[in-house]
Computed example of a mutant assay.
Amino acid sequence: MKSNMARLNNGMTIPIIGMGTFSFENDYHITHNAVQMALKLGYNHFDTAQVYGSEPALGAALRDSISRGAVERESLFVTSKLWGSHHHDPVSALKRTLMNLGMEYVDMYLVHWPVRMKPWVSTPYAKEDEFENLDMETTWAGMERCLEMGLCRGIGTSNFSCKKIESLLDHASVVPAVNQVEMHPMWKQKKLRNYCKDHDIHVSAYSPIGGPGNFWGSTAVVESPVIRSIAQKHKATPAQVALRWGMSKGSSVIVKSFNEDRLKENIGALSLKLDNKDVNEIERMEEWKIMRGEVYVNQTTSPYKTIEELWDDEI
């Protein structure tokens, strides 16, 4: 198996670096052009979600490249996600995603958050009266149905704690192949990584450099003196060091940039090698979770009354 791939529990392989396509502006042409640029640079793993609004642009860019013979569908790895307002019917939600993408299947379909909302909620920010009781047994049965129908090649979770995965495994016929979570040198997810390793669940890292380009993100990771010092030592960039650290833990990293130089920089992390001293220095860095999910916590309608409940004290 190539060193830039990881093996999943269902026999699939996942490229260890992927391009995220969430954009606050969600400009179709910018996303379309960035994806085609990424393909030329060697990216073949693309991450989207129905709530991102980027599925149509991503799908069109990939189809254009496939039709020109520049890439084959089989060499691509496309992930999308089930939004909270579609927990009642994952099959219909995935069919809509496939229509948006113009594809017959996605490679991975994830439950975006352990949060269920009213069916009409279409934004990332649910109002207090838009939550419903979470019923993961029903939701996961729908995800398994998507798999049985061939609408996806694998199913998994996103933003699930050890405890939430454990509850899921109590009734799941199919073990999640992937759990996608925030993970970077300042939020190492050691407990979760160990738990997922014990259950053969691949951890995929979003915001692997701290999400500095997002309105909720931080530059703390790339501005860390430890990360900068290691980057200088290897004639690399801080972003490359952060990405290589994530890969060194057996995780795939989903990094979002639509800038050509940054896309080149990010994929360049594949050729960086960190030594034990580097890794030990990173292990000693302070921990700080950036994406806390406060919007999914309230005292009345959410199943989570506190941030600690949302993450099961893994925060």
Rank of each mutant, 00 (worst) to 15 (best):
N33I: 08
G59L: 04
M37Q: 14
M37D: 10
L62E: 04
L39F: 05
P56L: 08
N33D: 15
N44M: 09
L62W: 08
L62F: 06
A60S: 11
E55A: 02
Y43P: 02
Y43Q: 04
H45W: 06
E55Q: 02
H45C: 15
Y52E: 11
K40Y: 01
A57P: 04
D47A: 13
Q36K: 15
F46C: 12
Y43T: 04
L39S: 04
D64Y: 03
S67F: 08
P56C: 06
S54K: 10
H32C: 06
D64S: 13
A34Y: 08
M37L: 11
S65G: 00
A49H: 08
G42A: 13
F46I: 13
G53C: 12
V51D: 08
N33K: 14
N33E: 15
N33M: 08
R63L: 09
H45P: 07
I66N: 10
M37G: 09
M37W: 00
H32W: 14
L41I: 12
V35F: 04
P56T: 10
Q36L: 14
I66K: 12
L41G: 05
I30G: 00
Y43G: 05
P56K: 06
N44Q: 10
E55K: 03
M37F: 01
H32Q: 13
A34I: 06
H32P: 05
F46R: 09
V51E: 07
H45K: 10
A61T: 11
A61R: 07
G53N: 09
H45D: 06
D47S: 07
Q36N: 15
S65C: 12
T48C: 15
E55R: 01
A61L: 05
Q36F: 01
G59V: 03
G53P: 10
Q50D: 08
G42R: 07
S54F: 10
V35P: 04
I66T: 12
S67Q: 15
H32T: 04
I30T: 15
A57D: 03
L58M: 06
E55F: 02
P56Y: 08
F46D: 11
L39R: 00
R63W: 01
V35M: 08
Q36C: 11
G42V: 07
Q36A: 06
T31E: 05
D47F: 07
A49Y: 02
V51G: 09
H45L: 09
G59S: 04
E55L: 00
K40T: 02
D47Y: 11
A57M: 04
A60I: 00
Y43L: 03
S65L: 03
N33F: 03
S65E: 13
V35L: 07
H45R: 15
H45Y: 14
R63V: 00
N44Y: 09
G42H: 06
